[in-house]
Design a protein around this nucleic acid. Structure first.
Lengths: 219, 219
DNA sequence: AACCAAGTGGAATGCCCTATCCGCTTGTGT
DNA sequence: ACACAAGCGGATAGGGCATTCCACTTGGTT
Protein backbone atom coordinates (compact mmCIF):
# COMPACT_ATOMS: atom_id res chain seq x y z
CA UNK A 1 0.00 0.00 0.00
CA UNK A 2 2.35 2.71 1.17
CA UNK A 3 5.60 3.13 -0.76
CA UNK A 4 7.54 0.69 1.37
CA UNK A 5 9.50 0.88 4.52
CA UNK A 6 11.52 -1.76 6.27
CA UNK A 7 11.92 -3.69 3.03
CA UNK A 8 15.67 -4.19 2.69
CA UNK A 9 17.00 -1.20 0.79
CA UNK A 10 14.22 -0.26 -1.58
CA UNK A 11 13.59 -1.90 -4.93
CA UNK A 12 14.58 -0.43 -8.22
CA UNK A 13 11.56 1.49 -9.44
CA UNK A 14 10.72 -0.78 -12.36
CA UNK A 15 10.94 -3.70 -9.99
CA UNK A 16 8.61 -1.99 -7.58
CA UNK A 17 6.16 -1.47 -10.40
CA UNK A 18 6.29 -5.13 -11.29
CA UNK A 19 5.74 -5.99 -7.68
CA UNK A 20 2.56 -3.95 -7.65
CA UNK A 21 1.41 -5.48 -10.89
CA UNK A 22 1.91 -8.93 -9.46
CA UNK A 23 -0.04 -8.13 -6.33
CA UNK A 24 -2.89 -6.63 -8.31
CA UNK A 25 -3.03 -9.61 -10.64
CA UNK A 26 -2.90 -12.04 -7.74
CA UNK A 27 -5.66 -10.12 -6.04
CA UNK A 28 -7.89 -10.55 -9.05
CA UNK A 29 -7.03 -14.20 -9.56
CA UNK A 30 -7.36 -15.20 -5.91
CA UNK A 31 -10.63 -13.35 -5.60
CA UNK A 32 -12.11 -15.42 -8.39
CA UNK A 33 -10.36 -18.77 -8.02
CA UNK A 34 -9.31 -19.04 -4.42
CA UNK A 35 -5.87 -19.65 -3.02
CA UNK A 36 -5.20 -22.75 -5.06
CA UNK A 37 -4.57 -20.67 -8.16
CA UNK A 38 -1.20 -21.56 -9.63
CA UNK A 39 1.83 -19.31 -9.43
CA UNK A 40 2.17 -19.62 -13.20
CA UNK A 41 -1.34 -18.34 -13.84
CA UNK A 42 -0.70 -15.34 -11.64
CA UNK A 43 2.53 -14.50 -13.42
CA UNK A 44 0.67 -14.76 -16.70
CA UNK A 45 -2.12 -12.51 -15.45
CA UNK A 46 0.44 -9.99 -14.26
CA UNK A 47 2.29 -10.07 -17.57
CA UNK A 48 5.63 -10.84 -15.95
CA UNK A 49 7.95 -13.81 -16.24
CA UNK A 50 7.59 -16.61 -13.76
CA UNK A 51 11.07 -15.94 -12.44
CA UNK A 52 10.10 -12.41 -11.53
CA UNK A 53 7.21 -13.64 -9.47
CA UNK A 54 9.38 -16.12 -7.59
CA UNK A 55 12.16 -13.61 -7.07
CA UNK A 56 9.75 -11.22 -5.40
CA UNK A 57 7.69 -13.80 -3.52
CA UNK A 58 9.73 -16.93 -2.93
CA UNK A 59 6.83 -18.72 -1.26
CA UNK A 60 3.16 -18.74 -1.99
CA UNK A 61 2.54 -17.67 1.58
CA UNK A 62 4.45 -14.44 1.15
CA UNK A 63 2.38 -13.57 -1.89
CA UNK A 64 -0.86 -14.38 -0.12
CA UNK A 65 0.18 -12.28 2.84
CA UNK A 66 1.00 -9.32 0.61
CA UNK A 67 -2.26 -9.64 -1.29
CA UNK A 68 -4.58 -9.95 1.68
CA UNK A 69 -2.93 -7.58 4.08
CA UNK A 70 -5.39 -4.83 3.32
CA UNK A 71 -8.44 -7.08 3.31
CA UNK A 72 -7.41 -8.25 6.76
CA UNK A 73 -6.95 -4.64 7.74
CA UNK A 74 -10.49 -3.93 6.57
CA UNK A 75 -11.63 -6.84 8.69
CA UNK A 76 -9.93 -5.37 11.71
CA UNK A 77 -11.47 -1.98 11.01
CA UNK A 78 -14.90 -3.58 10.80
CA UNK A 79 -14.42 -5.21 14.18
CA UNK A 80 -13.31 -1.96 15.76
CA UNK A 81 -16.20 -0.06 14.19
CA UNK A 82 -18.66 -2.65 15.40
CA UNK A 83 -17.25 -2.19 18.88
CA UNK A 84 -18.33 1.45 18.80
CA UNK A 85 -22.02 0.73 18.41
CA UNK A 86 -24.19 1.74 21.32
CA UNK A 87 -25.72 -1.73 21.49
CA UNK A 88 -23.10 -4.44 21.78
CA UNK A 89 -25.49 -6.94 20.27
CA UNK A 90 -26.02 -4.74 17.23
CA UNK A 91 -22.26 -4.48 16.92
CA UNK A 92 -21.88 -8.21 17.26
CA UNK A 93 -24.46 -8.83 14.62
CA UNK A 94 -23.04 -6.21 12.32
CA UNK A 95 -19.55 -7.59 12.54
CA UNK A 96 -20.61 -11.16 11.92
CA UNK A 97 -22.57 -10.09 8.87
CA UNK A 98 -19.75 -7.93 7.61
CA UNK A 99 -17.01 -10.48 7.89
CA UNK A 100 -19.13 -13.17 6.28
CA UNK A 101 -19.92 -10.69 3.54
CA UNK A 102 -16.20 -10.13 2.99
CA UNK A 103 -15.90 -13.87 2.54
CA UNK A 104 -18.76 -13.96 0.07
CA UNK A 105 -17.14 -11.24 -2.01
CA UNK A 106 -13.75 -12.88 -2.20
CA UNK A 107 -13.14 -16.58 -2.41
CA UNK A 108 -9.50 -16.18 -1.55
CA UNK A 109 -10.18 -14.14 1.54
CA UNK A 110 -12.80 -16.65 2.61
CA UNK A 111 -9.99 -19.19 2.76
CA UNK A 112 -7.51 -16.85 4.37
CA UNK A 113 -9.92 -16.27 7.23
CA UNK A 114 -9.97 -19.99 7.96
CA UNK A 115 -6.22 -20.54 8.05
CA UNK A 116 -3.27 -19.71 10.13
CA UNK A 117 -0.25 -17.94 8.68
CA UNK A 118 2.50 -18.37 11.22
CA UNK A 119 4.84 -16.11 9.31
CA UNK A 120 2.97 -13.14 7.76
CA UNK A 121 3.13 -11.21 10.99
CA UNK A 122 1.14 -8.18 9.84
CA UNK A 123 -1.69 -10.40 8.72
CA UNK A 124 -1.77 -12.27 12.00
CA UNK A 125 -1.54 -9.11 14.03
CA UNK A 126 -4.57 -7.69 12.29
CA UNK A 127 -6.40 -10.93 12.82
CA UNK A 128 -5.49 -10.82 16.50
CA UNK A 129 -6.71 -7.29 16.90
CA UNK A 130 -9.98 -8.01 15.15
CA UNK A 131 -10.45 -11.05 17.31
CA UNK A 132 -9.70 -9.10 20.46
CA UNK A 133 -12.23 -6.42 19.58
CA UNK A 134 -14.76 -9.11 18.82
CA UNK A 135 -14.08 -10.88 22.09
CA UNK A 136 -14.69 -7.65 23.90
CA UNK A 137 -17.99 -7.30 22.06
CA UNK A 138 -18.94 -10.80 23.15
CA UNK A 139 -18.59 -9.94 26.80
CA UNK A 140 -20.67 -6.81 26.48
CA UNK A 141 -23.36 -8.45 24.39
CA UNK A 142 -23.69 -11.15 27.01
CA UNK A 143 -23.94 -8.50 29.69
CA UNK A 144 -26.73 -6.90 27.73
CA UNK A 145 -28.54 -10.19 27.87
CA UNK A 146 -28.79 -10.42 24.09
CA UNK A 147 -26.04 -12.96 23.43
CA UNK A 148 -26.28 -16.42 24.91
CA UNK A 149 -23.91 -17.16 27.76
CA UNK A 150 -22.52 -20.28 26.11
CA UNK A 151 -21.37 -18.50 22.99
CA UNK A 152 -17.62 -19.02 22.65
CA UNK A 153 -15.21 -16.95 20.57
CA UNK A 154 -14.35 -20.11 18.67
CA UNK A 155 -17.87 -20.13 17.36
CA UNK A 156 -16.91 -17.28 15.08
CA UNK A 157 -14.10 -19.33 13.59
CA UNK A 158 -16.43 -22.22 13.10
CA UNK A 159 -18.90 -19.94 11.39
CA UNK A 160 -16.18 -18.63 9.09
CA UNK A 161 -15.24 -22.17 8.14
CA UNK A 162 -18.86 -23.11 7.62
CA UNK A 163 -19.48 -20.06 5.52
CA UNK A 164 -16.43 -20.77 3.39
CA UNK A 165 -17.81 -24.25 2.80
CA UNK A 166 -21.18 -22.92 1.73
CA UNK A 167 -19.60 -20.38 -0.58
CA UNK A 168 -17.45 -23.04 -2.18
CA UNK A 169 -20.23 -25.57 -2.65
CA UNK A 170 -23.20 -23.42 -3.56
CA UNK A 171 -21.58 -21.85 -6.65
CA UNK A 172 -24.57 -20.12 -8.22
CA UNK A 173 -26.58 -19.44 -5.13
CA UNK A 174 -23.55 -18.77 -2.97
CA UNK A 175 -24.53 -15.32 -1.81
CA UNK A 176 -28.05 -16.23 -0.85
CA UNK A 177 -27.04 -19.46 0.81
CA UNK A 178 -24.37 -17.65 2.80
CA UNK A 179 -26.79 -15.01 4.02
CA UNK A 180 -29.24 -17.69 5.01
CA UNK A 181 -26.58 -19.54 6.97
CA UNK A 182 -25.54 -16.37 8.76
CA UNK A 183 -29.16 -15.60 9.61
CA UNK A 184 -29.61 -19.05 11.11
CA UNK A 185 -26.42 -18.82 13.09
CA UNK A 186 -27.32 -15.43 14.49
CA UNK A 187 -30.57 -16.93 15.68
CA UNK A 188 -28.63 -19.65 17.40
CA UNK A 189 -26.40 -17.09 19.10
CA UNK A 190 -29.13 -14.69 20.19
CA UNK A 191 -31.11 -15.00 23.37
CA UNK A 192 -34.53 -13.96 22.10
CA UNK A 193 -33.96 -14.60 18.44
CA UNK A 194 -37.12 -13.70 16.68
CA UNK A 195 -35.59 -11.75 13.85
CA UNK A 196 -36.61 -12.62 10.32
CA UNK A 197 -34.47 -14.93 8.26
CA UNK A 198 -33.15 -14.11 4.79
CA UNK A 199 -34.93 -16.07 2.09
CA UNK A 200 -33.53 -19.52 1.29
CA UNK A 201 -32.19 -19.92 -2.25
CA UNK A 202 -34.11 -21.98 -4.77
CA UNK A 203 -33.17 -25.63 -4.34
CA UNK A 204 -32.29 -26.23 -7.99
CA UNK A 205 -29.51 -23.72 -8.00
CA UNK A 206 -28.14 -25.00 -4.75
CA UNK A 207 -26.82 -28.32 -5.92
CA UNK A 208 -25.48 -27.50 -9.30
CA UNK A 209 -21.83 -28.38 -9.77
CA UNK A 210 -20.73 -31.89 -10.46
CA UNK A 211 -17.34 -33.23 -9.56
CA UNK A 212 -15.99 -29.76 -9.86
CA UNK A 213 -12.85 -31.22 -8.28
CA UNK A 214 -9.41 -29.83 -8.95
CA UNK A 215 -8.56 -31.72 -12.12
CA UNK A 216 -10.72 -31.91 -15.19
CA UNK A 217 -12.63 -35.15 -15.67
CA UNK A 218 -16.23 -34.81 -16.70
CA UNK A 219 -19.66 -36.33 -16.72
CA UNK B 1 -22.53 -55.07 -3.21
CA UNK B 2 -24.50 -57.97 -4.60
CA UNK B 3 -22.83 -60.04 -7.29
CA UNK B 4 -24.09 -57.91 -10.14
CA UNK B 5 -27.17 -57.75 -12.18
CA UNK B 6 -27.96 -55.60 -15.12
CA UNK B 7 -24.28 -55.04 -15.77
CA UNK B 8 -23.81 -56.06 -19.39
CA UNK B 9 -23.14 -59.76 -19.39
CA UNK B 10 -21.15 -60.35 -16.23
CA UNK B 11 -17.43 -59.80 -15.83
CA UNK B 12 -14.85 -62.51 -15.90
CA UNK B 13 -14.29 -63.53 -12.33
CA UNK B 14 -10.76 -62.16 -12.02
CA UNK B 15 -12.00 -58.91 -13.47
CA UNK B 16 -14.79 -58.81 -10.95
CA UNK B 17 -12.22 -59.29 -8.19
CA UNK B 18 -10.18 -56.41 -9.49
CA UNK B 19 -13.28 -54.30 -9.65
CA UNK B 20 -13.92 -54.97 -5.96
CA UNK B 21 -10.31 -54.24 -5.10
CA UNK B 22 -10.52 -50.93 -6.88
CA UNK B 23 -13.69 -49.95 -5.10
CA UNK B 24 -12.26 -50.90 -1.73
CA UNK B 25 -9.07 -48.98 -2.39
CA UNK B 26 -10.99 -45.96 -3.62
CA UNK B 27 -13.17 -46.13 -0.56
CA UNK B 28 -10.13 -45.92 1.69
CA UNK B 29 -8.46 -43.18 -0.30
CA UNK B 30 -11.54 -41.02 -0.70
CA UNK B 31 -12.39 -41.41 2.95
CA UNK B 32 -9.04 -39.97 3.93
CA UNK B 33 -8.28 -37.53 1.13
CA UNK B 34 -11.60 -36.49 -0.31
CA UNK B 35 -12.79 -36.72 -3.88
CA UNK B 36 -9.82 -34.88 -5.32
CA UNK B 37 -7.63 -37.95 -4.91
CA UNK B 38 -6.08 -38.82 -8.25
CA UNK B 39 -7.08 -41.81 -10.33
CA UNK B 40 -3.44 -42.81 -10.42
CA UNK B 41 -3.15 -42.95 -6.64
CA UNK B 42 -6.24 -45.09 -6.44
CA UNK B 43 -4.93 -47.54 -9.01
CA UNK B 44 -1.71 -47.71 -7.05
CA UNK B 45 -3.56 -48.29 -3.79
CA UNK B 46 -5.61 -51.04 -5.43
CA UNK B 47 -2.53 -52.70 -6.86
CA UNK B 48 -3.86 -52.67 -10.40
CA UNK B 49 -2.63 -50.96 -13.53
CA UNK B 50 -4.03 -47.59 -14.40
CA UNK B 51 -5.55 -49.01 -17.55
CA UNK B 52 -7.59 -51.47 -15.52
CA UNK B 53 -9.03 -48.68 -13.45
CA UNK B 54 -9.99 -46.65 -16.51
CA UNK B 55 -11.40 -49.67 -18.30
CA UNK B 56 -13.73 -50.39 -15.40
CA UNK B 57 -14.55 -46.78 -14.54
CA UNK B 58 -14.11 -44.56 -17.58
CA UNK B 59 -14.98 -41.43 -15.63
CA UNK B 60 -14.23 -40.34 -12.14
CA UNK B 61 -17.92 -39.91 -11.55
CA UNK B 62 -18.66 -43.56 -12.21
CA UNK B 63 -16.06 -44.58 -9.67
CA UNK B 64 -17.39 -42.16 -7.09
CA UNK B 65 -20.91 -43.42 -7.68
CA UNK B 66 -19.83 -47.03 -7.21
CA UNK B 67 -17.88 -46.21 -4.07
CA UNK B 68 -20.52 -44.17 -2.32
CA UNK B 69 -23.60 -46.06 -3.34
CA UNK B 70 -23.78 -47.86 -0.03
CA UNK B 71 -22.99 -44.80 2.06
CA UNK B 72 -25.84 -43.03 0.33
CA UNK B 73 -27.99 -46.02 1.01
CA UNK B 74 -27.11 -45.79 4.68
CA UNK B 75 -28.08 -42.15 4.54
CA UNK B 76 -31.43 -43.05 3.10
CA UNK B 77 -31.92 -45.71 5.75
CA UNK B 78 -31.12 -43.16 8.45
CA UNK B 79 -33.74 -40.80 7.10
CA UNK B 80 -36.37 -43.52 6.97
CA UNK B 81 -35.49 -44.69 10.46
CA UNK B 82 -35.71 -41.15 11.77
CA UNK B 83 -39.15 -40.91 10.22
CA UNK B 84 -40.31 -43.76 12.45
CA UNK B 85 -39.68 -41.95 15.70
CA UNK B 86 -42.71 -41.10 17.75
CA UNK B 87 -41.64 -37.49 18.01
CA UNK B 88 -41.00 -35.93 14.62
CA UNK B 89 -38.68 -33.39 16.20
CA UNK B 90 -36.60 -36.14 17.76
CA UNK B 91 -36.45 -37.79 14.36
CA UNK B 92 -35.48 -34.54 12.71
CA UNK B 93 -32.76 -33.96 15.22
CA UNK B 94 -31.53 -37.51 15.03
CA UNK B 95 -31.31 -37.45 11.27
CA UNK B 96 -29.47 -34.15 11.15
CA UNK B 97 -26.95 -35.40 13.66
CA UNK B 98 -26.56 -38.71 11.89
CA UNK B 99 -25.97 -37.34 8.43
CA UNK B 100 -23.52 -34.76 9.70
CA UNK B 101 -21.77 -37.56 11.56
CA UNK B 102 -21.51 -39.53 8.34
CA UNK B 103 -19.80 -36.51 6.84
CA UNK B 104 -17.42 -36.24 9.76
CA UNK B 105 -16.40 -39.86 9.36
CA UNK B 106 -15.71 -39.66 5.67
CA UNK B 107 -14.26 -36.70 3.90
CA UNK B 108 -15.26 -38.03 0.51
CA UNK B 109 -18.86 -38.58 1.52
CA UNK B 110 -18.96 -35.12 3.01
CA UNK B 111 -18.28 -33.81 -0.47
CA UNK B 112 -20.63 -36.22 -2.20
CA UNK B 113 -23.48 -34.94 -0.06
CA UNK B 114 -22.88 -31.42 -1.32
CA UNK B 115 -22.84 -32.21 -5.02
CA UNK B 116 -25.13 -33.28 -7.74
CA UNK B 117 -24.43 -36.38 -9.83
CA UNK B 118 -26.70 -36.13 -12.81
CA UNK B 119 -25.73 -39.57 -14.02
CA UNK B 120 -25.26 -42.04 -11.13
CA UNK B 121 -28.96 -42.76 -10.99
CA UNK B 122 -28.87 -45.06 -7.98
CA UNK B 123 -27.03 -42.48 -5.96
CA UNK B 124 -29.46 -39.75 -6.87
CA UNK B 125 -32.45 -41.95 -6.25
CA UNK B 126 -31.26 -42.69 -2.74
CA UNK B 127 -30.61 -39.03 -2.18
CA UNK B 128 -34.11 -38.23 -3.39
CA UNK B 129 -35.69 -40.77 -1.11
CA UNK B 130 -33.75 -39.58 1.90
CA UNK B 131 -34.72 -36.04 1.09
CA UNK B 132 -38.37 -36.98 0.69
CA UNK B 133 -38.41 -38.72 4.05
CA UNK B 134 -36.73 -35.73 5.60
CA UNK B 135 -39.21 -33.34 4.03
CA UNK B 136 -42.02 -35.36 5.49
CA UNK B 137 -40.36 -35.11 8.87
CA UNK B 138 -40.16 -31.37 8.49
CA UNK B 139 -43.89 -31.03 8.05
CA UNK B 140 -44.62 -33.15 11.07
CA UNK B 141 -42.06 -31.45 13.27
CA UNK B 142 -43.58 -28.10 12.41
CA UNK B 143 -47.03 -29.46 13.22
CA UNK B 144 -45.68 -30.55 16.60
CA UNK B 145 -44.64 -26.97 17.17
CA UNK B 146 -41.03 -27.93 17.74
CA UNK B 147 -39.56 -26.87 14.40
CA UNK B 148 -39.75 -23.26 13.30
CA UNK B 149 -42.19 -22.50 10.53
CA UNK B 150 -39.58 -20.80 8.39
CA UNK B 151 -37.29 -23.79 8.23
CA UNK B 152 -36.85 -24.75 4.58
CA UNK B 153 -35.66 -28.10 3.22
CA UNK B 154 -32.79 -26.25 1.57
CA UNK B 155 -31.51 -25.44 5.02
CA UNK B 156 -30.37 -29.03 5.30
CA UNK B 157 -28.29 -28.70 2.14
CA UNK B 158 -26.81 -25.51 3.42
CA UNK B 159 -25.96 -27.21 6.68
CA UNK B 160 -24.29 -30.05 4.82
CA UNK B 161 -22.18 -27.61 2.85
CA UNK B 162 -21.32 -25.70 5.98
CA UNK B 163 -20.40 -28.85 7.82
CA UNK B 164 -18.20 -29.98 4.94
CA UNK B 165 -16.42 -26.65 5.15
CA UNK B 166 -15.83 -26.99 8.88
CA UNK B 167 -14.57 -30.54 8.47
CA UNK B 168 -12.17 -29.49 5.74
CA UNK B 169 -10.80 -26.47 7.58
CA UNK B 170 -10.66 -27.62 11.17
CA UNK B 171 -8.31 -30.58 10.52
CA UNK B 172 -7.40 -31.58 14.05
CA UNK B 173 -10.52 -30.45 15.83
CA UNK B 174 -12.82 -31.36 12.95
CA UNK B 175 -15.09 -33.67 14.90
CA UNK B 176 -15.63 -31.34 17.81
CA UNK B 177 -16.07 -28.31 15.60
CA UNK B 178 -18.60 -30.15 13.49
CA UNK B 179 -20.64 -31.24 16.49
CA UNK B 180 -20.60 -27.71 17.80
CA UNK B 181 -21.84 -26.36 14.49
CA UNK B 182 -24.63 -28.90 14.36
CA UNK B 183 -25.62 -28.04 17.91
CA UNK B 184 -25.84 -24.37 17.04
CA UNK B 185 -27.83 -25.02 13.90
CA UNK B 186 -30.30 -27.22 15.74
CA UNK B 187 -30.85 -24.38 18.14
CA UNK B 188 -31.55 -22.10 15.23
CA UNK B 189 -34.06 -24.56 13.83
CA UNK B 190 -35.87 -25.35 17.04
CA UNK B 191 -38.73 -23.35 18.45
CA UNK B 192 -37.86 -23.44 22.10
CA UNK B 193 -34.20 -24.31 21.79
CA UNK B 194 -32.82 -24.60 25.25
CA UNK B 195 -30.88 -27.79 24.78
CA UNK B 196 -27.25 -27.85 25.81
CA UNK B 197 -24.54 -27.24 23.26
CA UNK B 198 -21.59 -29.56 22.67
CA UNK B 199 -18.35 -28.12 24.00
CA UNK B 200 -16.42 -25.85 21.62
CA UNK B 201 -13.00 -27.13 20.60
CA UNK B 202 -9.87 -25.52 22.01
CA UNK B 203 -9.03 -22.50 19.88
CA UNK B 204 -5.42 -23.47 19.26
CA UNK B 205 -6.33 -26.62 17.43
CA UNK B 206 -8.94 -24.90 15.39
CA UNK B 207 -6.73 -22.82 13.14
CA UNK B 208 -3.84 -25.09 12.49
CA UNK B 209 -3.13 -25.67 8.82
CA UNK B 210 -1.16 -23.27 6.72
CA UNK B 211 -1.62 -23.02 2.98
CA UNK B 212 -2.52 -26.66 2.96
CA UNK B 213 -3.54 -26.04 -0.64
CA UNK B 214 -3.39 -28.75 -3.28
CA UNK B 215 0.26 -28.53 -4.28
CA UNK B 216 3.21 -28.47 -1.95
CA UNK B 217 4.72 -25.07 -1.26
CA UNK B 218 5.63 -24.38 2.33
CA UNK B 219 6.32 -21.80 4.99
C1' DA C 1 28.46 8.25 -21.67
C1' DA C 2 29.67 4.28 -19.51
C1' DC C 3 29.46 0.92 -16.14
C1' DC C 4 27.42 -2.70 -13.43
C1' DA C 5 24.47 -4.39 -9.93
C1' DA C 6 19.84 -5.25 -10.06
C1' DG C 7 16.38 -7.03 -12.57
C1' DT C 8 14.25 -9.61 -16.43
C1' DG C 9 11.93 -13.42 -19.22
C1' DG C 10 12.08 -17.77 -21.01
C1' DA C 11 14.05 -22.27 -21.16
C1' DA C 12 15.05 -26.33 -18.59
C1' DT C 13 14.17 -29.79 -15.02
C1' DG C 14 11.55 -32.86 -12.60
C1' DC C 15 7.28 -34.20 -10.78
C1' DC C 16 2.46 -35.78 -11.02
C1' DC C 17 -1.65 -36.17 -13.47
C1' DT C 18 -5.26 -37.97 -17.23
C1' DA C 19 -6.15 -40.84 -20.89
C1' DT C 20 -5.12 -44.10 -24.55
C1' DC C 21 -2.61 -47.70 -26.93
C1' DC C 22 -0.84 -52.18 -27.48
C1' DG C 23 1.42 -56.59 -27.01
C1' DC C 24 1.13 -60.15 -23.55
C1' DT C 25 -1.59 -63.28 -20.18
C1' DT C 26 -5.47 -65.88 -18.55
C1' DG C 27 -10.18 -67.49 -17.59
C1' DT C 28 -13.65 -70.08 -19.69
C1' DG C 29 -16.63 -72.58 -22.87
C1' DT C 30 -16.16 -76.31 -25.91
C1' DA D 1 -6.65 -79.59 -24.10
C1' DC D 2 -7.35 -75.62 -26.84
C1' DA D 3 -8.71 -71.36 -28.78
C1' DC D 4 -9.73 -66.91 -28.17
C1' DA D 5 -12.30 -63.24 -26.21
C1' DA D 6 -11.68 -60.77 -22.20
C1' DG D 7 -8.69 -58.74 -19.35
C1' DC D 8 -4.18 -57.05 -17.93
C1' DG D 9 -0.41 -53.62 -16.92
C1' DG D 10 3.35 -50.94 -18.59
C1' DA D 11 4.55 -47.49 -21.85
C1' DT D 12 3.45 -43.37 -23.80
C1' DA D 13 1.60 -38.99 -25.29
C1' DG D 14 0.30 -34.59 -23.67
C1' DG D 15 -0.39 -31.20 -20.18
C1' DG D 16 0.12 -28.40 -15.87
C1' DC D 17 2.78 -27.03 -12.18
C1' DA D 18 6.81 -25.46 -8.96
C1' DT D 19 11.22 -24.12 -8.99
C1' DT D 20 15.90 -23.05 -10.70
C1' DC D 21 19.21 -21.32 -14.00
C1' DC D 22 21.20 -18.30 -17.09
C1' DA D 23 22.18 -15.11 -20.83
C1' DC D 24 20.47 -10.73 -21.74
C1' DT D 25 18.65 -5.82 -20.56
C1' DT D 26 18.25 -1.65 -17.99
C1' DG D 27 17.92 1.94 -14.23
C1' DG D 28 20.67 4.81 -11.79
C1' DT D 29 24.97 6.55 -10.35
C1' DT D 30 29.29 8.60 -11.31
Amino acid sequence: MEPDRKRPRRLRCDAEQNRERIIEAARRVYEREGLSASMASIARAAGVGIATLFRRFPTRTELIAAVFEDAMERNRAAALAAGERASAWDGFREYVETVCGLQADNRGFAEVLTMNFGSAKVLERHRQEAFAAFTDLIGRAKAEGRLREDFAPEDLLILLMANAGVLAAATDAAGEASRRLVGQMLRAFAVGAEEALPEAPAPKRLLRGMVRGRRGSAC
